[in-house]
Simulated scan of single mutants.
Amino acid sequence: MLTRWSEPFLQVTDVTYQYDHMKSFSLAKQSFTLEKGKLLVILGPSGSGKSTLLQLIAGLLRPNQGTIIMGGKPIHQLPPEKRNLSMIFQKPYLLPFLTVGANVEIGLKLKGVPSSERRVKSEEILHQVGLTGFYQRPLSSLSGGQEQRVALARSLVIEPQLMLLDEPFSQLDPLLRRQMGHWLGDMKRKWEIPMIMVTHDREEALTLGDQFLILRDGVAQQSGTLENIYYEPANRWMADFMGIDNVVDGIKRGTRVTTFLGDLEVHPHCVNVPDGPVHIVLRSEWLQMDSASSIEATIESSAFRGEYTEVRAHVNGESVVIKQLGFSNYERGTKTGVRLTTSNVWCLPKEVM
Results as ranks from 00 to 15, higher is better:
residue 233 P to E: 04
residue 202 R to T: 04
residue 243 G to V: 13
residue 236 R to Y: 15
residue 215 L to V: 03
residue 245 D to H: 14
residue 228 N to H: 11
residue 247 V to N: 10
residue 228 N to D: 15
residue 214 I to F: 06
residue 253 R to I: 03
residue 228 N to A: 14
residue 222 Q to K: 04
residue 241 F to C: 03
residue 231 Y to G: 14
residue 250 G to F: 05
residue 229 I to H: 03
residue 205 A to C: 04
residue 249 D to C: 00
residue 228 N to K: 15
residue 225 T to Q: 13
residue 219 V to S: 12
residue 232 E to G: 00
residue 246 N to I: 13
residue 208 L to C: 04
residue 227 E to N: 10
residue 249 D to Y: 08
residue 240 D to P: 03
residue 230 Y to H: 06
residue 233 P to H: 04
residue 225 T to R: 10
residue 204 E to Y: 00
residue 215 L to I: 10
residue 201 D to S: 13
residue 218 G to H: 14
residue 249 D to W: 05
residue 202 R to W: 02
residue 251 I to G: 02
residue 215 L to T: 07
residue 231 Y to I: 02
residue 239 A to M: 07
residue 225 T to V: 14
residue 213 L to N: 02
residue 220 A to T: 09
residue 203 E to S: 15
residue 225 T to W: 12
residue 201 D to N: 14
residue 204 E to P: 03
residue 211 Q to D: 15
residue 201 D to W: 10
residue 211 Q to N: 11
residue 244 I to Y: 06
residue 241 F to Q: 00
residue 236 R to M: 11
residue 211 Q to W: 08
residue 241 F to R: 00
residue 252 K to G: 06
residue 231 Y to T: 08
residue 228 N to S: 14
residue 216 R to T: 01
residue 207 T to L: 14
residue 224 G to R: 08
residue 225 T to Y: 12
residue 226 L to F: 13
residue 199 T to N: 03
residue 212 F to V: 05
residue 249 D to L: 09
residue 221 Q to M: 09
residue 240 D to Q: 14
residue 236 R to I: 11
residue 242 M to C: 12
residue 217 D to F: 09
residue 229 I to G: 01
residue 206 L to E: 06
residue 217 D to V: 06
residue 246 N to Q: 07
residue 242 M to I: 13
residue 236 R to C: 04
residue 220 A to H: 02
residue 250 G to E: 02
residue 211 Q to M: 11
residue 238 M to V: 13
residue 217 D to P: 01
residue 252 K to Q: 13
residue 242 M to T: 09
residue 215 L to C: 07
residue 215 L to Y: 11
residue 236 R to A: 15
